[in-house]
Amino acid sequence: MSEQGKPSPASTARRQFVLDAAKMACGVGLAAGGLALYAKQAKALPPGALRPPGALAEGDFQGACIRCGMCVRDCPYRILSLARPEHPVATGTPYFVARGLPCEMCEDIPCVKACPTGALDHSLVDITKARMGLAVLIDHESCLNWLGMRCDVCYRVCPLIDKAITLEPQRNPRTGKHTMFIPVVHSDACTGCGKCEKACVLEVSAIKVLPAALAKGEIGAHYRLGWKEKDRAGESLVAPDAEHKFNLPEGYRYEYGGRGLVRDEPELSTLPGAPKGAK
């Protein structure tokens, strides 16, 4: 280090060097700190923006994507755009908005093939395995099917109809005599292409594609679903199934499947006041 006594020219120069270096480190450090904070903000992809098929998880994607726009160029439907600085997506990275233009799910997935870095995973060769997001019928209050009508548009446009979206019949409690056909999205099949969100006839779509992390719940790892465990084991794991005994009037029985209390059929016609010939 520095010598004893008066500072030599060499030591003065050394001091100056250290001082300059410190100044530089502070200035650049400040700028880098600001950029780091900005980068942290930019890592959060807004829920409305979807990445192309095969995109790595958002954290990895922003390290792997070199912002070249090859996927944008090779998308035959011109769905993808590169984020501009004013967009709430990391500058230069590709995204699409389902309500604007949804993914057409090309079988040869040209966007993935175009990616030079593997930010869009080249191991994705079956477009039905893509997971761009997950459709969620998020607004039960305005969905026409939930209101008891037969809109079904999201179900009809789904490229994986009856796999990614099914219609589940339910009793309509408002009328008491109709059926509601509830669109239900199945996460094991939905690719998040966004066709349903685009097609929803409402002013604002009741079904929306969200990032899977936002849309999905997760059951505790220690949870065991009794009926599944029972199926797997072939028998009840806790205690042998005992048939439930009811104290019912003669001629009645209880059906678990949904009808509940039922009167045995042969006796129907013998009851007083029963219409003749009724079964």
């Binding site: 880098a32 950029l35 980068a39 942290k40 890592k43 954290g59 390290g63 070199i66 230069g92």
Partner: peptide, 14 residues
């Protein structure tokens, strides 16, 4: 350093 520390190509943001 930022690329390594943030896990993103931070410089490309600006």
């Amino acid at each position: 350093v930022l690329a390594g520390a943030t896990g993103t190509i931070a410089w490309e943001l600006v």
